[in-house]
Design a protein around this nucleic acid. Sequence first.
RNA 1: CGGAGUAUAGCGUAGUCAGGUUAUCGCGCCACAUUUGGGAUGUGGAGGUCAAAAGUUCGAAUCUUUUUACUCCGACCA
Length: 491
Amino acid sequence: MSKSITSKTQDYSKWYNDIVVEADLADHSAVRGCMVIKPHGYAIWEKMQQALDKMFKDTGHVNAYFPLFIPKSFFSKEASHVEGFAKECAVVTHYRLKNDPNGGGIVVDETAKLEEELIVRPTSETIIWNTYKGWIQSYRDLPLLINQWANVVRWEMRTRLFLRTAEFLWQEGHTAHATAEEAVAETEQMLNVYADFVENWMAVPVIKGIKSANERFAGAIETYCIEALMQDGKALQCGTSHFLGQNFAKAFDVKFASKEGGQEFVWATSWGVSTRLMGALIMSHSDDNGLVIPPKLAPTQVVIVPIYKGDEGFKKVSETALQIVTKLKAKNITVKYDSRDTQRPGWKFAEYELKGIPIRVAIGERDLASGTVEIARRDTLAKETISINDIDNHIEKLLNDIQENLFAKALKRTQESTHNADSYDELKKLLDEKGGFVSAHWDGTKETEEKIKDETKATIRCIPLNNKLEDGKCIYSGKPSKQRVLFARAY
RNA sequence: CGGAGUAUAGCGUAGUCAGGUUAUCGCGCCACAUUUGGGAUGUGGAGGUCAAAAGUUCGAAUCUUUUUACUCCGACCA
C-alpha cells in the first residue's frame, strides 16, 4: 500500500510508484518512510543536481564531503540547534553483531557498545563547524564557501513520500565570512540562486520571503525561504537559506585574526534544497496522464516512436528516424529512438506520457511518403504534423515553448490562488473554500501565530521580501500591523 | 504514543457476517497465432504457506485469542 501525494485532479500514487519512486522498504519497520528512487526518478534528480551544482560553482562555491556520523557531544554544542533536532535523530550505539548464543539469528553484541553515541546526521552544521575550526585562522582564509551533496536522516513520526521521508538526498552549503554584512549577502544570494533554479529550470513560481521566528531554523538568526503553491492549493517550502550569525562560530570557537589584528568570531550561513523538490515538480505540473517534466530537466527531451509493418517497413522508418536523431543531437537535444519491437506504438505513447517526456515524435511509412512526422507535446497533449526538413529547429523552439508554458501556467494558477483577507472570518473562509496563499495583517507575535495555526491549520509561510509596507490591523488580535504576511495550509 | 481501518498471486480484488469440492475476478507475466497511426485480440499456460502463531471443529481465508506490519486522522515536523 503506497503513500499518496494527492492533487486536485488525482491521486498520483496510481502511477508514480511505477516510474519515479516506490516505498518498497516501507513494509519493514526499521526503514519505514524511506524511499527507493527508481532510475527515471533518479535521472531527474541528477539533472537537478547538475544545474544546481553549476550555479553554486558560478557563485564561487566548491564541493566537499563530511562524515555521516556526528559524535553526540558535537551535536549538543549549539543549544537551540540541538533542541530543534534532538527529537528526530537516529543514534548509533553499537558497532558489532554476533550470533545469538540462544540460537536463532543475529543479535547486537552488547560488549561492542560505543563510548560515545554517534548521531546519523540530520544536517551537518555541527560536524562541519567542528572541522572549520581547524581551517580558519585568518581573514585570509575567508570567505569559506563550501557545499556538500549528501543524504541525511530525520526520524519523523510521520513520513510523507517525497515531502518528508526519513532519509532524503540534498545539498547543504555552509559558508564562513568575516563580516555580518557579507554573510547576509551570501544568504540572500543563495536564496536568489534557489529561486532562479526553481523558477527557470523547474518552471515552478516561488515567493521569496523570511520565516517568522516560530518557523525559523534551529540555530539561525534569520531564515530566508522560497514557497510555492501546489495544484491542490497547499503550500510547499522549496528551499531555505539561513543567516546563522555567530551562533555556530561561538559554539565551536571558530575565530579569525582580522586585518586589524584582533580575534573575531566568523559569521555563518547555511542553505539547502532536497529531493522534496521532486515532490514540488510532480505536484506542480503533473496531470491525469502522469508526470510532466519541464524540458530543461527532462533526462530525455524527445522520444521517437516508429510505426511500421514488417521488417522492411522497420528498416525504412528507422533510417529516417536515425537521421532525425543525428540532427537533434547536433542541437544538444537529448533524444531516444525507441525501436523495441516488444511493445506496440500505443503502449509506448502512453508510457512516455506517464514518464513526462516533453516531446514525442511518431514516424510511420505514411510519413515517409509525405515527408512529415507527427509531433505531440506533453504539456498540452496537442499533436501536429510537420515537415521533416525543419524538424530540428521546430523541436528546439517547441522545447522552449513548453518550458515557458509550464511556468506561465503555474504562475497563473499561483496568482489566481492568492487572496487578501481583511478579517479573521475572511481568512478562514478563503482557506476552506479556495486554499492557496492568503495575505493578511499579523501583529508579529508568536501567540497570535500559534492560535491561528491551531484554529485553522494554516501557518505563516513567509513575510515576502518584496512586501510593500501598509498600515493595518492584525486580523486576529486587532493590534496595529505594518505589513501583510502570507498564510497557507502547507505540507 | 492516542483514535479508526486494513492484511488473500507482482499489483488491485471477491469470498469472512452465516465454516463445507481444486480460493474468485481483472491487470500484469509466459507460449503460439493474427496484429502494429493511442496502453491489441484469440487460444493455452505459470503463479497462493489466505500476514504470523496458538486454539475451537470431522473440517477454518471465514469463529476465538495473541502477535506483527501497513494506511488514514491526531500528536510531532528548522
